[in-house]
């Protein structure tokens, strides 16, 4: 069971860098008691060692996360960026990508994390779906679109 609701979404977000986006999404999760106060710092540390940017089309995405430690309840956080932020490419950490959608994962169980990633990967491979999500007019629209596409209740 994945916690996903409007307070975990950052809509039309202006942030200066990836660290700020991660800190904000983790802060939203922490405010709901879903993750520890350290989850954002843990996720940023992991992102620097093992980046999660992906060169999807027509724009790039990232799926930052940390280990299960510090996660009270599994959750999905999302940021829709007003301007792209740089994340490094998972497949080639020397390459910077302009990221417009950030999916922050918090999972208590690695198997469950893989399942979340499987569900997200279906969207990652469809440019028209990524555009639909990015171009939602409201935060509410982002929430209901994702709930529908990912079959979240």
């Amino acid at each position: 069971m994945l916690e996903f609701y409007e307070s975990l979404i950052a809509f039309d977000l202006q942030a200066k860098d990836a660290k700020e986006v991660i800190g904000l999404l983790a802060g939203n999760m922490n405010a709901q008691g879903l993750v520890s106060a350290e989850y954002g710092a843990q996720t940023w540390a992991r992102e620097m060692d093992h980046p999660t940017g992906l060169p999807t089309k027509p724009f790039c995405i990232a799926f930052p996360h940390a280990d299960a430690e510090g996660v009270n309840k599994s959750a999905l956080g999302v940021a829709v960026m007003r301007q792209p932020v740089k994340f490094q490419n998972m497949a080639d950490p020397d390459e910077s990508l302009d990221v417009e959608l950030v999916f922050m994962l918090a999972n208590r169980d690695p198997q469950e994390q893989i399942q979340t990633l499987r569900n997200l990967a279906v969207l990652f491979g469809q440019p028209e779906k990524l555009v639909e999500l990015r171009d939602q007019a409201t935060l509410h629209g982002v929430a209901s679109w994702l709930r529908h596409e990912l079959n979240l209740s």
Partner: peptide, 9 residues
């Protein structure tokens, strides 16, 4: 690379 096992996909 690590961790999340993207290789599972």
């Amino acid at each position: 690379g690590a961790g999340i096992n993207t290789s599972t996909i």
